[in-house]
Amino acid sequence: MGRRLDRILRNRALLLGSAILLFYVLVAVYAMIRFRGSLDYIPPHPDVIAGLLLPQRPTLTLFPFHLGAYPLGETGGLGFNVAEALVKGTPWDLAIFSSVIVPTAILGMVVGTLSGAGSGLVDDLLMAVTDVILSIPPFVFALLLFVVVLPRVPTELLLPSFLLGFILVLWAPYARLVRAEAKRVSRKYFVEAAAASGASRSRILFRHVLPNSLTPMLSQIPITLSTMVSVMTLLPFVAIFSSGSVVNFVTFLPSLDFPEWTWTLANGLLGWSVITETNSWWGYTYPIACLMFFGAGVTLFVNGLTAYLTVES
């Protein structure tokens, strides 16, 4: 136990990643307590929507410390308070990302293990399905979901449907990685020893092969997260720039004033102007920083965990 703790304490990536993720969890808890009752709503600024006002500049000053009404300013588009939108969006985004990453990893893990340790026919069939999924880029699949499926889904099922679409697409790379590792592991002596001692096929699969095939799968988690962020940012952005406004926009969110990081960012981008005086840089800079910091936390955590587990095994 002491040695393990010592190794964890010497793993800087793991510690730093955990600290960043813990910070986000604490912000999420704070948001749920502080904004109880209004967590799913950011009041838009009616004058900004009408184009009568420029978005508010950040009011935060460090010397002397002063928060003000708009610490990180206001976005273009619907005119969200950036700080409020990012804080309120934290619990939702943590839920959105984890509700996609966990099921995709589990689905990919099961398919990959069955394929890697299964017979030729099972392997060929499962990998054929995986190849079909991999041949459609995730953003095209998301675009199809957006265009065709979401307009026909009831509002309360929009977000779950969109996330389900992500899960259906993003499990495939996990399956490929786990399959390759499961193939390697299933040729190891301890698996042959388990088979010789009379262990059942399912026991060998899920007790011996699967736990030893997990490490490469971890490296896919930051890529899944990055794909989600890219697609979730791209879709509102494309829709907004095609129409020039946020009105009549089909969204995967329950409502247009829903606090979500990428949606805040898309609104922030509408505040950009080629003229420096009217360019609301804060509307897109802070949401980008928020996403990047979170991404760095996940990457460091995963890299640290991989290093820890690799040495451990």
């Binding site: 930051p222 890529i223 990055s226 890219s230 897109y284 996403l291 990047m292 991404g295 760095a296 990457t299």
Partner: peptide, 14 residues
Amino acid sequence: SAFILYVPAVLIAF
């Protein structure tokens, strides 16, 4: 690489 991974391509182009 880490920077590119988390800054969506749409933002880099923007």
